[in-house]
Amino acid sequence: MLPKEPGEKEVQELCAGHPQHPGELLALLLEIQEIYHYLPPTAMKEVARYLAVPESQVYAVATFYKALTLKPQGKKIIRICQGTACHLRGSSEVLETIKEVLGIAPGETTTDGCFTLETVNCLGACALAPVVMIGDETHGQMTPERIRKLLQEVST
């Protein structure tokens, strides 16, 4: 199931935890992102109303930062590194395997709402190349076989 759209009341409760100051905008959006894995338009409108900030300003901030997304994300985000070291050690084949197993391309979310696939340029762990992150966990020295097994483990 995709993360559900928050009700008006839930967002109001979230807002109430922050002072009614325009400077709270990013903090509030990050909190909503953390809980719902994306920013639903209804929530952004509620934030604008609460902070007395124009909706255009909320949309500007929401689209500016990479950490915020307007598209619903899966429960777990799979980040596969496409940096130089990972590329040389065969991250392309690992990526192809993930695409084949989950049936999604980078930037997409599985229909069951479990996984979102993202490619990144470096995860800062080149010694472990090729590197894949599933949620908060880092997995190094990936091969098509190992990622296939890993995906099976985290799916169950």
């Binding site: 952004m44 124009p54 909706e55 255009s56 300003q57 909320v58 949309y59 500007a60 689209t63």
Partner: peptide, 26 residues
């Protein structure tokens, strides 16, 4: 005093648009 439009996205994709790319309420 309306603030109905602003820039969205960043870098090469940056553009002026109403919020949510919908007809602006404000």
């Amino acid at each position: 005093g309306n603030g109905a439009i602003a820039t969205c996205l960043r870098g090469r994709e940056k553009r002026v648009s109403p919020p949510f790319d919908e007809p602006p309420a404000d």
